[in-house]
Nucleic acid binder design. Sequence first.
RNA 1: GGCGGGGUAGCUCAGUUGGUUAGAGCACAGGACUCAUAAGCCUGGGGUCGGCGGUUCGAAUCCGCCCCCCGCUACCA
Length: 511
Amino acid sequence: MKQNNFYITTPIYYPSGQPHMGHAYSSILADVFARFMRINNCKVYFLTGTDEHGLKIQKSAEKVGLDPLIYCDKISKVFRELTKKLNLSNDDFIRTTEKRHYKSVNDLWNRLIKSGDIYLSKYKGWYSVSDEAYYNDDEIIEKDGKKITTFSGSSVEWVEEESFFFKLSSWEKKLLEFYARNEKFILPVSRRNEVINFVKNGLKDLSVSRTSFTWGIKVPKNHKHVIYVWLDALTNYLSALNYPNTKDILFKSFWPASVHIIGKDILRFHAIYWPAFLLAANIKPPNRVFGHGWILSGDEKMSKSKGNILNPQQIIDTYGIDQLRYYLMKEVSHGSDGNISLKSLERCINSDLANNYGNLCQRIFSFIKNNCNNKVKKTNKVSNSDKEIIKKTRELTNNLRNEMNNQNLNNYIKAVINISFLTNKYINDEEPWKLKKNNVEKMNNILHLALEQIAKISILFNPIIPKATTKVLDALNVKNNSRNLSFLDRKNVLAEKIKIKDLNILFKKIT
RNA sequence: GGCGGGGUAGCUCAGUUGGUUAGAGCACAGGACUCAUAAGCCUGGGGUCGGCGGUUCGAAUCCGCCCCCCGCUACCA
């Protein structure tokens, strides 16, 4: 990994159902960080994709009478299309059914065999056919002469299955050392504690192959076995960089990954298994795993039976993608679960986007169009209130890079919207409409400063609401190579003399 | 059960080396203005900071007990 390079990933999605709000959230969150790092002058590689192996997919394909791969082509496409609808800026979209991925998984497997971390043995336990799951002794009771699991009540049978194992147990200490050395490997901190706790309670070796189904990557030299889902799926992060060719420019530039964005439900796989596999294979683990919370609807996890599903596609069609992106990023607080509802979505769009940022742009652009023929020129006279707003804006933006380096998007958004408050107040206080007749110079200075503020806000909001902010920056004639964070280092975005274009309403108010 | 996080205004949350009248945004009410999407600005109402007890000159903040919510407690992912 080169300095100033940034590799960020979403989970690869298991396409056994339609994309839901949780997928949308993970993807948008990752996209926001990717876009931010780009305007922060980093070279970014942003990856998403689909995880297409396993029993569920095999069965679903059988049900509709399709070859699993053809079936996957179809459903993976749905997720690929979603990246467009969500306006993701991903550089690649990987599927675990691709050749490059097979090559990569095979290589990782062979490395682990070679290092002695994978061995062949037998997996034994109580298996429930209907649950497709194994249970521990303490989860089993006898009822009417039958063994059943207390977990779901379904009947279980004793099964012994040949399986390859990964020597996870021998990585316990090394993992704990790794977490200690890399304090921010797992964020937020609460999740880090969970993981450390789990590891401290002891790790058992992990079964990493299955013989009960065939839809997957076959174990090299033993085709009876299919490679366990996580050893398969996680490796996608390497495959996309052309691993096993570690001399490849992509791999050299972007590994280890800067951050894997994931939901808290798959934290263990990313924070324990994944670094263990990699350490065993003598590959550097990623720099960070960020586990976000779930999207809830009315305090409940969204589910079909509860009828409280908010479908991302519908929301986008009704309200727009920038609106959905902004709402999700604002409403869900750092790392914890977030409740969403149409009501709060509409409130959020109206207050932040329409009334605040949108209207700020509108009032300034309209005024300049009607009174200045779209031309503004500033002089070097700086009033006390100018100094004041510049100073306050600087205070608000001081820590923004740091907030984003810790995935703390809430503080970021709060700071930026506060710049919008400041600017609205500035205009109210300065009353440029009163200066039309007798002080055009001062009026110009005020308007120019307002535009400068709008430019800064628009650049800072660009990762979150790219469409709307691009319209504004276009209307301001800000060059592409100026749409970055260099103004944080006390530079101005706009020239002293500027000509702007007309700007249409950015966000319609919802009534 | 064990370990961890949390309970602050109607809603979402900020706020600990303990210290003046506990904060923000949204929502609500009133006011002055008019460039603007009846937007923006100003002012205001509203909180026994989960409960009880303790330490202290002083506690949302420290200690003890209790109540409630959430997460983790491995091979579905």
